[in-house]
C-alpha cells in the first residue's frame, strides 16, 4: 500500500468512527457536522473530475450545486403545498422520494453541464474561468428574481425527504446514507481515473496536440468530463438541500463555487481523496475558528495563501510527499 493509500484508508475510517462515537455519546451536532463534511466532499469530488483530471478550472460549479438543491426544493415544495407541478400530459404532484429527486437532480445537472460546457469549452485558460463564473452569476440572479419559488428568501421544506427503508429524520441514518453515496461516487471516480476515458482525459490535459494526433478529440473528452462532474455536484446539491431542509440563491452564489474549489485545492488537486480531506479540514476550521473569532475568514484566507504559496499538492501532498499519481 502506498502512503497515499494509507492516508485515504485513515480518512475513511475517521468518517466511520467519528460519527459512530458521536452516536453513542449522543452528540447529534457532531453527526450533522459530519454529514456536512460528506456532502461538501461529494460536491468537491465532482469538481475534481473536471479540475484534477480534465484541467478545467471551473469557477461556476455552484450552478450544478444550486440546480441539485432547487430540484429537491421544487419537487418537494409541490407535494408540501398540494399544488401539482404540472397536470399535462399527466398529473404530477412532485415527489418526496430521495431516489427520484436524485435522479432528477443528476439528469438536470448533466443536461445543464452539457449546454454550458458546449459554450464554455470553446474557450480555454482565463476565458474559461471567467465565463464559468459568469454563468454562475446568471443562475444566481435568475434564482433571485424567480419569485414563484421564494426568490431571494429561498424555499423551506419542513420534512426531510424519505428513502425506502430508512428514517431519514434520524441524523445517523441520514449520515449513513450520505456516506454510502460518497463511497460509491469515490469508487466510481477511481474507476474513471483508471479507465481508457480517464487516461485519454489526462492526456488531453497534459498535451492536447498529441491526443489529437492519435485521433481523439480533446473537446469531446473535456465535455464528457464536465458533464459527469456537473452531475456529481448536482447530486451533492440535492443532498445538501435535504440536510438543511432549505434552498436559497446562496447555493448558486460565486462564493459557493469558490468554496467548492477551496475544498479541492486544500486537500490536493487530482487526488482521489483530496476533496474529502479538504472538506474535513474546511468544516473543522469553520467550526473551531468560528467559535474563536467573528473574523475567522481572515485566518482561513491566510491558511489558503500559505497552502497555495508553499505547500505543493495540497494537504495530502504535504503528508505523502509525492506528486499526484497522474502527473
Amino acid at each position: 500500500m502506498t502512503r497515499e493509500g494509507i492516508v485515504n484508508a485513515l480518512v475513511l475510517v475517521c468518517l466511520v468512527l467519528v460519527p459512530g462515537w458521536a452516536f453513542y455519546a449522543g452528540e447529534t451536532f457532531t453527526i450533522t457536522l459530519a454529514t456536512r463534511v460528506v456532502i461538501l466532499a461529494l460536491a468537491a469530488v465532482g469538481l475534481n473530475i473536471a479540475l484534477g483530471l480534465g484541467g478545467l478550472v471551473s469557477l461556476g460549479h455552484a450552478v450544478f450545486f444550486g440546480l441539485g438543491g432547487y430540484t429537491m426544493g421544487i419537487l418537494a415544495y409541490h407535494v408540501q403545498a398540494y399544488e401539482p407541478l404540472f397536470e399535462w400530459p399527466f398529473l404530477f404532484e412532485g415527489t418526496k422520494s430521495m431516489p427520484a429527486i436524485w435522479l432528477a437532480a443528476v439528469v438536470l445537472s448533466a443536461l445543464t453541464a452539457f449546454v454550458i460546457g458546449l459554450l464554455c469549452l470553446r474557450t480555454s485558460g482565463a476565458y474559461f474561468i471567467m465565463i464559468t463564473l459568469a454563468f454562475g452569476q446568471m443562475f444566481y440572479f435568475f434564482s433571485i428574481s424567480w419569485s414563484a419559488y421564494g426568490g431571494e428568501d429561498g424555499l423551506s421544506i419542513y420534512v426531510r425527504n424519505g428513502f425506502p427503508g430508512l428514517n431519514t429524520l434520524d441524523p445517523i441514518q441520514f449520515y449513513g446514507l450520505c456516506f454510502c453515496v460518497l463511497v460509491v461516487v469515490l469508487w466510481f471516480a477511481s474507476r474513471l481515473n483508471r479507465s481508457r476515458f480517464g487516461l485519454a482525459l489526462n492526456a488531453a490535459r497534459q498535451s492536447p496536440e498529441r491526443v489529437e494526433a492519435v485521433g481523439l478529440r480533446p473537446f469531446h473528452l473535456r465535455l464528457t468530463a464536465f458533464v459527469i462532474s456537473g452531475a456529481v455536484t448536482g447530486l451533492a446539491g440535492a443532498l445538501f438541500a435535504d440536510l438543511n431542509r432549505f434552498v436559497s440563491p446562496a447555493m448558486f452564489s460565486w462564493q459557493m463555487s469558490g468554496e467548492i474549489m477551496i475544498l479541492v485545492i486544500l486537500g490536493g488537486v487530482g487526488r482521489l481523496y483530496g476533496p474529502v480531506v479538504g472538506a474535513i479540514v474546511f468544516v473543522a476550521l469553520e467550526h473551531v475558528l468560528g467559535d474563536l473569532s467573528d473574523y475567522w475568514h481572515i485566518y482561513l484566507g491566510l491558511l489558503l495563501l500559505t497552502v497555495v504559496l508553499f505547500v505543493r499538492g495540497g494537504l495530502i501532498g504535504a503528508v505523502t510527499g509525492r506528486r499526484a499519481a497522474h502527473d
Binding site: 478550472v57 469557477l59 469558490g258 477551496i262 482561513l300
Partner: peptide, 24 residues
C-alpha cells in the same frame, strides 16, 4: 509563475482577508 488555478485561489484568499479586515 504559477498556473491560473493557484492565482484564483490565492486572490480568493486575499478577498477573504481584505473583506474581513475591513469589517474588523
Amino acid at each position: 509563475a504559477k498556473d491560473h488555478l493557484d492565482q484564483v485561489l490565492a486572490t480568493f484568499a486575499l478577498i477573504l482577508i481584505f473583506s474581513e479586515g475591513t469589517r474588523w
